[in-house]
Amino acid sequence: MSIKSLAVPTQLLPGFDRNAVAEGVATEDFPHDPGTLVDMDPVIALRQIAYYKDRARDDPRRVMAYRNAADVIEALTEQQREKHGAANSWQSLPRIGPKTARVIAQAWAGQEPDVLVELRESAEDLGGGDIRAALRGDLHVHSNWSDGSAPIEEMMIAARDLGHEYCALTDHSPRLRVANGLSPERLREQLDVIDEIRELVAPMRILTGIEVDILEDGSLDQEDELLERLDIVVASVHSKLAMDEAAMTRRMLKAVANPHTDVLGHCTGRLVTGGRGVRPESKFDAEKVFGLCRDAGTAVEINSRPERRDPPTRLLTLAMEIGCLFSIDTDSHAPGQLEFLGYGAQRALDAGLEPERIVNTWAVEDLLAWARA
């Protein structure tokens, strides 16, 4: 998807026919491609601004101001919109500030808001070249069911409009309470919700999944029965990151050996920049861990988040030399972050990684056969 034709959640577009779009059929009222901006609707404008700000790694609180404003305007009746539009009284509404009110007023008048024009024109290519072009999907994505900022439907529509053939929803597991991790009951409920929206995001395929915590003893933080049901299991360490090298090695080896584990997520846990500060790498015997990843067929994640860049280059090179498979993932928590694939793809390109060793360049049936093996 080119930056100049940024997709938006299609259910917000005027004349949107959920069933027709799910079937790929244009209607008289909706003759446009999914994601095309038909009118400068305030809700669409606000969500596009939020998308671009997420993509540009803006302060999440500023992004949420636009997302919240979109929710407020979306909830108004047409009569209420007409009333506020005529009086230009948008700022009298809850959660609407001066900046979002200006965006709404400009969009209501049929103008493209200044801030949207500026964001679109300043958006940069995130890189990745041929490897980015070869990626068919994303295997590590969060929604507001855990610590993401957007509903499942919005995340999946954005992924579809980016051209993904598949996208795995991988919200957190129960032990990670700070991220609102999903209990077994909530995960079962989420699986039902995914089934309800599959047609909406067709032809893209939603893959069921989880980012499951690797507990201190190396076990996985979710019921085996549920892990067995999921398409993709990303296993990551989120706690006690500073434990000693021998203990961390045992912990990671046990997780990689678990038959449910498909992807080893952000293996060092480091943070190199960003609002959460800097965090050093966890210490573990990388040769042993990557050797078992190779033997078990577990992919090593190239986490595309700019604040992670995990694994570090020396460990990425080591995993390549050992013969591992890889998965380039965004670990996205908002729609605009789905474009972070370019960052991870660029790292793989710079390292000389062959595309065929990246599991999310594979067709979905090949990917699922690998995950089930």
Rank of each mutant, 00 (worst) to 15 (best):
I358S: 05
T313D: 11
P9R: 01
L187E: 04
G85T: 02
V141A: 09
E216M: 07
G275Y: 13
K254M: 11
A75Y: 03
P151N: 07
R102S: 15
A255F: 04
D244V: 05
K83Q: 09
L264P: 03
E153D: 12
L139H: 15
D130W: 02
D217P: 07
A299K: 09
I358Q: 04
R279S: 08
C324E: 02
G269L: 06
E225K: 14
V263A: 12
A345I: 15
S239K: 05
R270K: 10
P14D: 15
G218M: 03
N180L: 09
V256M: 07
E228A: 13
A105Y: 06
W370Q: 06
M155T: 00
H32F: 14
Q222R: 08
G277Q: 07
R309E: 13
Y66C: 07
G24K: 05
L368H: 14
R62Y: 15
E356F: 03
G209I: 07
T170N: 06
K83F: 15
A105G: 08
E121R: 14
K53H: 03
G342D: 00
D17R: 15
E245L: 10
P306T: 11
F290M: 08
R57G: 08
M204Q: 05
D329S: 13
R188E: 15
V263E: 05
E307P: 01
D171N: 10
G323Y: 06
V289S: 01
